[in-house]
Design a protein around this nucleic acid. Structure first.
Lengths: 174, 174
DNA sequence: GGTCTCACCGCAGAATCTGCGGCATCCTGC
DNA sequence: GCAGGATGCCGCAGATTCTGCGGTGAGACC
């Protein structure tokens, strides 16, 4: 029943709602309703519609990797022959520390992001990958930007009714 | 306003709780409590502690980029001279479609992830970047894996403060 | 004009969150 | 062994929030 996933013509109110739950995934309906200047029922109706149409995929808590012991992060580019794709899949399956893997055009076939507790931990994973294809590993100094998907159209200066000005600073600065 | 966050000795219950809110950021306390087999109050106490200590950073709704019109995604590697870092910062600041930017070791200085509504949209951003440094752009075929931070599963060695000078483990203290 | 659809609003009961006090366990020092 | 203190857990009751339902007004269409 995943009918017509896209094809949803969101208006400005929908976009404001999406922005609100992107900024605070636990915001209460009353708070969201106040943000988008709508009643609670209308807010809920729109939110549920966005969820059911797959525009809002899910809600997740984000954790601080360092607090879990992952003090290292690396970008690995990997080139692999087509016949070994399922070998890659197997590694991805058993290594949850590969938190992200994109299949891309260009020189590399895959670009991955890996978290590790230390150098030896990282090397364990990279050498596993190196058995399947040729890899290039770069360590991450710093996550400069990590943003939610931007809203097209008029993402800035949406509501202006009460003129309260600064509501909640430091929402998405990272 | 940040940190001194780490050094949080989470136990298995904390880890289960983190896993639960990572999987469903809107789960109710009662549901979480049932998952980790604890009372609602204890669950809330632990959750709040994790939040206040920065282990759980925030909650976010995740949207489907295609539903917002972003049908294209690209990985851009960028090499730039140190004197132009603030130029990069300026671009990052005014281009919300650069959803991720990592500063890394190796040949490139930055690795970015960009969403775009089409080729011309992508080219607008990449040519802006190309004015500041030399870039390599790869298109993303598919997001193979996109996982939350894994939980350090097996509780290896628990800190033991007996402190006899006889033994000294520290084989993996990085 | 009549009617249909759509999006909005508000209500009342159910569910959930919050702050508080009480209890059991584990240390620590005497 | 035994006070004193610190933790972590539990459950309660009031406040808040969510949910399903019916009602209303503005277009669209005939």
């Amino acid at each position: 029943m995943t009918d017509t996933p896209a094809a949803r013509p969101q208006d400005d109110v929908d976009r404001a709602l999406i922005a609100a739950v992107q900024a605070d995934g636990r915001a209460t309906l009353a708070k969201l309703a106040e943000t988008i200047r709508l009643s609670v029922s209308a807010t809920r109706s729109r939110l549920r519609s966005l969820e059911e149409h797959g525009v809002i995929r899910d809600y997740r808590a984000r954790v601080e990797p360092e607090a879990l012991g992952y003090t290292l992060r690396a970008i690995v580019r990997m080139k692999v022959h087509g016949s070994l794709y399922d070998k890659v899949a197997a590694i991805l399956d058993r290594e949850p520390q590969i938190v992200r893997c994109l299949r891309v055009t260009g020189e590399s076939c895959y670009v991955m992001e890996i978290v590790a507790t230390g150098m030896s931990d990282l090397e364990r994973i990279t050498s596993e990958l190196a058995r399947v294809g040729s890899i290039t590993t770069d360590l991450v100094y710093e996550i400069v930007v990590d943003r939610p998907t931007p809203l097209p159209g008029a993402p800035r200066r949406v509501a202006r009714a009460t003129g309260e000005g600064a509501d909640k600073p430091a929402k998405e600065a990272l």
